[in-house]
Design a protein around this nucleic acid. Sequence first.
DNA 1: CGCAAAGTTGCACACGATGTAAAGTTGCGC
DNA 2: GCGCAACTTTACATCGTGTGCAACTTTGCG
Lengths: 202, 202
Amino acid sequence: MGLRERQKRARREALIDAAHRLVDRDGLDGVTVEAICADAGVSTRTFFNYFESKDDAVLGMAPLRLDPEVAEAFATGGPTGVLATDLESLARSILASPLLDRGRMAAAAELARREPRLLVRHVTWLEQYRVELEGLLGRRLVGDSRHLVEVAGMTLMILVRAAMQRWESAGGQGEVADHLTAVNADLRLLLGAGPEPADPAG
Amino acid sequence: MGLRERQKRARREALIDAAHRLVDRDGLDGVTVEAICADAGVSTRTFFNYFESKDDAVLGMAPLRLDPEVAEAFATGGPTGVLATDLESLARSILASPLLDRGRMAAAAELARREPRLLVRHVTWLEQYRVELEGLLGRRLVGDSRHLVEVAGMTLMILVRAAMQRWESAGGQGEVADHLTAVNADLRLLLGAGPEPADPAG
DNA sequence: CGCAAAGTTGCACACGATGTAAAGTTGCGC
DNA sequence: GCGCAACTTTACATCGTGTGCAACTTTGCG
């Protein structure tokens, strides 16, 4: 990895850390982008080359992309053929490529608990991601109604979001994806649905 | 209803209509709050006495409150006792008190299709509403895990949101709530769940 | 070493959003 | 009707976010 790339990563992390430190001390609205930049040692203009907004820096957001192989497998009916199971599997892939390391992710989650606006921002991010994924879901559910695709996208959001909540409330240990089966179970419980259908492929 | 109240309503609607007209013509980012105010004939400062942001004016947002009787009934196990059914029923109550008349609501939905940011804002609004409702859900699900309550809140969001999408895609005719059963059915289909459990109370 | 690409920086600027205090309306008791 | 009290709008000042642009600096590479 070249120097340029390392510097970029370092700056990005410096900005995130500065944001965490200052927001923790002064609250989200008590901190200006300018202050974060002073702390991180870059110009304000540079800040906006890295993040779209102050909130994004705290959450460490970056454009998220899904493994093309996983996407293709899902779109063509895989990996098991059972929609509910495959949705969970897709959520697992999403959660497998975290934008932040464990420590910073936990810090961001902690701050998000104290600053509701950050939670809202997080939902916004998921929402944009959902729109992107709708193409994928549409391919998988070709022949079904457009509305089913929308519901599938929203359900996927629930899986990801609820799993992250559980991970954080469990102390930020282990893998986020490990909470997915519990979320799925709760969802079924809620709807009075029976246990998950068996895998027809074996 | 006194003059003061009527004027307030008229100003609010004038602002919404001006926002719709201008955003339709110039796009969301091509319109300034100042322009909307000029069109509606009020000062910019007044605008922010009515709406928190430009986007809110287009969506005609206002603090939403649920009928206390409905809330109480839900919290204490009603109306049917079947959670899935009662969630749908709760969603029906939410959708029964629209913030806008049919025409303006359709206009807002139309603009939201063209301006993704408005969709995101709408989700944000639902999200804040979800947080408020979590107290209610917590009472109903006392004894269950906090996580189940969270999933229930998110599911409720899906019901409301998907129903609105269907209403709009059906041409904005009839009642939004009429699409709820279809959403519920899709959700069950998605999870491979069977038909809705019967009402134990009858 | 020297060029090209990438990235940072300062500057200017538009707009969103809020606090404050003054001016203007409305509601209401009399 | 009168006049006071409550409420709203309004103008003004101000701060912070976010972006376009052009100049400068640094890195990658032959």
